[in-house]
């Protein structure tokens, strides 16, 4: 039950994009088309889960025993960048079709707030291994949910008559505001 609460909390109540504002660059950049958003959401969710697991191992078996906790930012950034780079090379070699589909997103993910933020939150909150992974997967799923909803709205928006000065980014932000407003309705559902 505890894990379920944690998962649902990460998906909707504390949605990373709409209540904590992480990963906005990708959120606004990619949400123009629905198919790209689905790909991006899945890529973020899977990379987030794996890199959080790696970060947890490094944090608890290297940084904490040697009293190097203050280096966690440097270590996590390098770790995630290396992991994503490695993944890119591996996918390019073994699954070229998948690389065609996901390749461009991987580069964008390498230095992204969400992917760095979740391991840092896990480290600060002292979550155990399973909890870290559940939190990371929930956050990734929340990101995917938000970006897919946003893309569906923006695709419909192409047929709307938007004032000229608000076209593009302006209206995208306002729609995100409305979406955040509706997600605010979930707050208080799960006590923190």
């Amino acid at each position: 039950m505890e894990y379920f609460t944690l998962f649902m909390g990460a998906v909707i109540v504390n949605n990373f994009v709409l209540t904590r504002f992480l990963g906005l660059c990708i959120f606004f950049g990619v949400s123009k088309s629905l198919s790209a958003s689905v790909g991006m959401g899945m890529a973020v969710a899977s990379i987030l889960t794996i890199s959080s697991a790696l970060a947890w191992l490094v944090y608890n078996f290297v940084l904490v025993p040697y009293d190097l906790v203050f280096l966690k930012i440097v270590v996590f950034v390098v770790l995630i960048a290396c992991f994503v780079q490695f993944l890119e090379i591996a996918i390019k070699k073994f699954a070229p079709a998948l690389y065609e589909m996901w390749g461009i997103y991987l580069v964008l993910i390498a230095t992204n707030c969400v992917v760095l933020g979740v391991p840092l939150i896990n480290a600060t909150a002292n979550y155990g291994f399973l909890k870290s992974i559940i939190n990371a997967f929930g956050s990734g799923a929340g990101f995917a949910l938000a970006i897919i909803l946003m893309a569906s709205l923006r695709e419909k928006l192409q047929y709307a008559d938007v004032p000229k000065s608000l076209q593009g980014m302006g209206i995208a932000f306002i729609i995100a505001g409305m979406l955040a407003l509706s997600f605010l309705g979930f707050s208080g559902m799960i006590p923190l």
Binding site: P163, S165, M169, G170, A172, F173, A176, G177, A180, L184
Partner: peptide
């Protein structure tokens, strides 16, 4: 309260981008 909560941020920035576009225009 909405202004200092999450949705307010999106709305303010969206409207400000619109305003800057108007000025540039």
């Amino acid at each position: 309260m909405i202004m200092i909560l999450a949705p307010g941020a999106f709305l303010v920035i969206g409207l400000m981008i619109g305003m800057f576009n108007l000025i540039a225009e």
